[in-house]
Amino acid sequence: MDQQDVESGYASATDSSPSSSVASLPRITLTKAHLDHLNAQFENMEAMDILRVCKVMFPNLYQSTAFGLTGLVTLDMLSKLQTESPTSSPVDLIFLDTLYHFQETHDLVARTQARYPNVRLHIYKPYGVSTTEEFAARYGEKLYETESELYDWTAKVEPLQRAYEELKVAAVLTGRRRSQGGSRDKMPIVEVDGERGVIKINPLARWTFQQVREYVAQHDVPYNALLDRGYKSVGDWHSTSPVAEGEDERAGRWKGQQKTECGIHNKKSRYAQYLQELAQKEKLAAAAEALNVVQQSETVSAA
């Protein structure tokens, strides 16, 4: 199914393209009318109720999280729902360890596991490596500076697609919110990621940063110590900085770059676009070389 089909009325959570690494995922199909109906209903529902419905409605439901504040709120809500209905299917976590997270983030992961011991955590790292040193040796020193698109693909996009394939993920909960700005300001609560073959659900899409912080304080949810040092959105240490008063919540991510996403949440990852452009350049170069060979042959023949 191509992207036009997804946008025009028939949305499937299985990408049938031969290049997809998630072609074996369980199939969830939503017509555009069904998708619109779900989003219209979810707009008037509390986040906890959205999660209740999603747990019943979507098979092979997971939560993808970098242990940001919104994801932690979602995790806490899911924990409460599991207590309400202990026989229901639990929602496992997927965490992408890029190998460049802050130590504070790793500390938070440990504290979260201690707080929610019944939640299963699946950790995925860049292919074939387990340490920063191994990453640099295999993929290049400071790849995040020299080839940022390749870095995003290697450290984030490919591991996530591998997780989706190995875990047979059909639907995934995210911690994205409209108030984070950028391309997120108009996102629906439920959407189809046709490139990766999953249904993507943003249960706290309507929440503000203040609402998230209030929930964390009220329910004593563990959070990243960096938030108390001026960070509002925490990613890799090499591309995350504190946020100044009055700046957008995600202003500290990739500061000074024309970039707001790492490729995971784009409709089509920037690295995929980069590969297309590279392939096109290679075709043009090959055509130019072939023309040059023909011209040289004609010159020799004329002589």
Rank of each mutant, 00 (worst) to 15 (best):
S16W: 14
T132V: 13
A11R: 09
K32V: 00
M45E: 15
E147D: 13
P188D: 03
R253A: 09
E147K: 12
S241M: 11
K200N: 05
A110Q: 14
R229Q: 10
L75D: 10
G263F: 11
M45T: 15
Y144A: 04
S179A: 15
D248P: 15
L81I: 07
G246D: 01
N292A: 10
S239H: 02
A225K: 10
T208Q: 12
D5M: 11
Q218W: 14
V22C: 15
P126T: 06
S24L: 11
Q296C: 03
E249M: 00
K55H: 02
D92E: 13
E261N: 12
P242G: 03
K142Y: 04
G230S: 09
S233A: 01
V294K: 11
E104M: 09
D76E: 03
A47S: 12
N39Y: 11
G182M: 10
R206P: 02
T98L: 04
T174E: 05
R229Y: 09
R138E: 03
V198P: 08
I264L: 14
Y144L: 00
K283P: 06
V192N: 08
Y124Q: 06
S64G: 15
V216E: 14
D97Q: 08
K281E: 08
V198M: 01
V192H: 03
Q276M: 15
D97R: 05
V190N: 01
F135C: 07
L204A: 04
K186Q: 14
W153H: 07
G246H: 00
Y274N: 03
S301K: 14
T154E: 02
L284I: 08
A47V: 12
E134H: 00
K281G: 13
T154P: 05
A279N: 06
P188L: 12
K156N: 04
T208M: 02
